[in-house]
Amino acid sequence: MSQGFEAVLSEEALPLRPAAEDPLGILADRVLAGDTEAFGELVARTEPRILGLAWRILGDRDLARDAAQEAYLRAFRFLGSYRRGESFEPWLVRIAVHACYDLSKKRGPLPVVPEILESFVSEDGPLPADEAVLLRQRRDLVRRALSDLPEGERAALVLRDLEGYSTEEAARILGVRPVTVRSQAATARAKLAAACARLMAPKGGRP
């Protein structure tokens, strides 16, 4: 078991809510009671979100699939540590984030993308025929800028601005204080905006 995941099990508990209000929690209880088919239902309900989250953190389809699969296997293995009444999805997201951290350490360098898009930008804006290429390259550059962020800032930004978690929820998932998430997310936004401005700049400076 990785060091990161050991931390998962010892972190502060996620918010409690009556199990009756959390259908995923009910499914988890059924799995714990021996109904392993309920785990299939649990996977079906949560997998799109977990896979999307893993892809947003890792920026790689294959790695994201591996991370999501690993997250579910860990979740099944350690389902006993899930507290009855605890909100299930943040518990699962926490495991997924740590699975992503573990896999990101094994990732090699990202494929090189063009450093700037200026070749497709004229003074009157992008040429229509090149708009699709420009859009694809802009996506690549934004993804590259996101992946260049430090792990904590990237996770904070993904959870806050892409996954829609509140600062407090993101803090509990990441096992840090809310003020840390605020700071990391704000720093990440500023870095990303600066990177976008730099990468998309026409010759000679900012747009």
């Binding site: 996506r139 993804r143 601005d161």
Partner: peptide, 10 residues
């Protein structure tokens, strides 16, 4: 704008 691009790209 950067946030919008982020959401679109991700």
């Amino acid at each position: 704008e950067a946030r919008a691009w982020l959401q679109e790209a991700m």
